[in-house]
């Protein structure tokens, strides 16, 4: 790891104030995991990944356009010494296809010698309109991939019951959605995310829970970390921002801000104000009596 300038230390490395994220046998120094899809150009993607500070990026498995004059391949734009690839099973709507996609991704990463060969982001969707996960197929695929030796990072809805089932099946991380994939709606049900965090971390405080999907902007990332999420995975919020490279930087700082705020511990919410400046010695008079905070006319 490089030694950053002192003033910029927290944005470069977490080690001084936070432990790295350990998930699926990997140690990630950035708690932000970013996707590589939907960028205008490969160069824009490359710069955005750089600015996000992520050390882990997701990729998808697709048919090669055989014998066509070959276009760019994403692998020519990803520094494999810098990024751990996390292959996904995106586009799969049943367990059988998802398991096949996972094994094909593992085969490519094994050939490339990338450390990401042993893990997968499992995503099995119910339909192509909502892109909501199919819980039945997701459970079946998770079971099979765990048996096949994969570290399974499992995309799921924000349903705490399914989340608990996936952990029981041996998922290396449960990754609840904030809102539908690519919707940019942020965290629609923070209460469910709170319950998932409580359930999964009970007696197992280091179990990694990663909020995956739905992020629209930087504050959504901060909110997820403030709730206690261990990581956030996002793609479209950067790739489709007006300025993806700048948004990637915003996401990096939002992740740091949210995580630091979580570790620092927020103050409780109170109904009434509490003065920051001393009450003693003020030169002014008060319009209402000390005991008249509430309903006095």
């Amino acid at each position: 790891m490089s030694t950053p300038a002192a003033s910029d230390a927290p944005s470069q490395t977490q080690t001084e104030w936070d432990a790295p994220l350990r998930v699926g046998g990997h140690t990630l120094t950035s708690r932000l995991i970013v996707g590589t899809g939907r960028y205008e150009t490969m160069e824009e993607m490359r710069q955005s990944l750089d600015q996000s500070g992520a050390t882990c990026v997701t990729v998808a498995v697709r048919r090669e356009r055989l014998y066509a004059p070959s276009g760019e391949n994403i692998l020519d734009f990803l520094d494999l010494d810098r990024y751990t690839l996390l292959p996904n099973t995106a586009g799969c709507f049943n367990a059988v296809d998802a398991v096949r996609a996972a094994r094909l991704g593992r085969e490519i990463l094994t050939t490339l010698g990338n450390p990401g060969a042993n893990w997968v982001k499992l995503e099995v969707l119910g339909d192509s309109k909502t892109l909501l996960p199919d819980p039945v197929e997701t459970l079946a695929a998770c079971r099979e991939l765990v048996a096949d030796g994969f570290s399974v990072l499992c995309y799921t809805s924000d349903d705490p019951v399914i989340a608990r089932r996936l952990k029981e099946l041996g998922a290396a991380s449960v990754m609840p959605a904030g809102s539908p994939i690519g919707s940019g709606q942020g965290l629609l049900n923070p209460n469910n995310l709170r319950i998932i965090l409580e359930y999964l971390k009970q007696d197992d405080p280091h179990y990694p829970v990663i909020v995956d999907a739905g992020v629209g902007t930087a504050s959504d990332v901060s909110e997820a970390f403030e709730l206690g999420a261990d990581g956030v995975l996002l793609n479209t919020a950067i790739a489709h921002a007006r300025d993806p490279v700048l948004m990637a930087s915003a996401m990096k700082h939002a992740a740091i801000a949210g995580r630091q705020a979580y570790l620092a511990g927020r103050i409780p919410k109170r109904l009434y104000g509490t003065a920051s400046s001393p009450v003693e010695g003020v030169i002014s008079t008060r319009p209402y009596g000390a005991a008249s905070r509430s309903t006095e006319k």
């Binding site: 990729v59 998808a60 498995v61 697709r62 048919r63 090669e64 692998l75 292959p87």
Partner: peptide, 10 residues
């Protein structure tokens, strides 16, 4: 026969 590669994805 399926021949696949990696592409951008989230």
């Amino acid at each position: 026969v399926e021949v696949v590669t990696l592409v951008g994805g989230g």
